[in-house]
């Protein structure tokens, strides 16, 4: 059985309620209706236009890792340190996000292997408050790096975020240097740090750990940038070029090494890890 079939079979199937909504899914790329099971079988890539859909942490981990991985516990961090409230309380927003997500925050870490290569994989989930980076995300990133250091293996991080979590104010901004400290530790230990940029990765996440990989890869069509497109347009009052801030555009401008189709990700990551074993890794 190829890894692709194995992954396909291990993926949690879409809810089995037989309503039209769950049977059919409208592709966000081409607008075509796709049979939900076909979509899941194809790793949430549209079979017609190749649009790569956004996926959660569990699906991503199952897709990239060999069976038998373990999930790291979600870190304990101070919750709502600023007692933040806009139109809603931050604690209410958190509660709502947790009610519709299997995880307590936007960054989940699994320790295991990718096609036999020992690896720790950290995945950011855009569905959890826009993947935004707060203290829980920053700490989970660091925990993942610490696990890679402990196991002397590579660290693969899958990014997806609108940016920093505003409800944690300056403390979210401080996650940028915090995560960077751990990237430096991986580097000092001679361990590979690979970043997979997925749709969308912007703001403070891009301007820290998402751009510091030894190797940078991106999924096709992923939006990747520092500033948001609306902000740029308001600042310069010019039309944005075709394909601006998309994965292919970043590749063309030398910011990512490879743009890789979701079907090929696991194989490519394993190959990279094999090349980057060096002398220090286990």
């Amino acid at each position: 059985m190829s890894w692709f079939n194995r992954v396909r079979n291990s993926l949690p199937f879409v809810a089995k309620r037989s309503t039209d909504e769950t049977l059919w899914i409208k592709c966000k790329g081409c607008g075509e209706m796709i049979f939900a099971s076909d979509y899941a079988d194809n790793l949430y890539v549209c079979p017609r236009c190749e649009h790569h859909g956004r996926i959660g942490a569990d699906t991503r981990i199952a897709m990239l890792m060999d069976e038998g991985f373990t999930l790291l516990p979600q870190p304990e961090v101070k919750e709502d340190p600023l007692k933040f409230r806009d139109s809603k309380r931050y604690t209410d927003r958190l509660r709502a996000a947790r009610a519709s997500n299997p995880h307590r925050d936007a960054f989940t870490v699994a320790s295991g292997a990718i096609d036999g290569q020992p690896a720790v994989v950290g995945v950011q989930d855009f569905h959890f408050m826009g993947g935004s980076m707060g203290m829980a995300v920053g700490q989970a990133f660091c925990d993942g790096a610490a696990e890679a250091l402990r196991r002397k293996c590579g660290y693969v991080v899958v990014t997806a975020a609108g940016g920093a979590r505003m409800q944690e104010g300056i403390l979210s901004l401080m996650q940028m240097p915090k995560a960077t400290v751990m990237v430096r530790k991986l580097r000092a230990a001679g361990l590979p740090y690979i970043v997979l940029l997925t749709d969308p990765t912007t703001g403070g996440v891009t301007a820290s750990y998402a751009m510091l990989g030894d190797v940078q890869i991106a999924e096709p069509g992923a939006l990747i940038g520092f500033a948001g497109q609306r902000v740029i347009q308001e600042t310069i009052r010019e039309q944005l070029p075709e394909g601006f801030q998309r994965a292919e555009y970043l590749h063309e401008h030398g910011m990512v090494d490879r743009v890789v189709h979701r079907h090929d990700l696991k194989g490519e990551l394993a190959t990279m890890l094999r090349y980057m074993r060096g002398s220090k890794a286990a």
């Binding site: 750990y209 520092f226 500033a227 600042t235 944005l240």
Partner: peptide
């Protein structure tokens, strides 16, 4: 600066490396 050329030349990467 949020601008087209800044993005093209890797604003995010430059900031990340400067922090580092």
């Amino acid at each position: 600066f949020p601008g087209i050329e800044a993005e093209e030349r890797g604003q995010a990467e430059a900031i990340a490396r400067s922090t580092e």
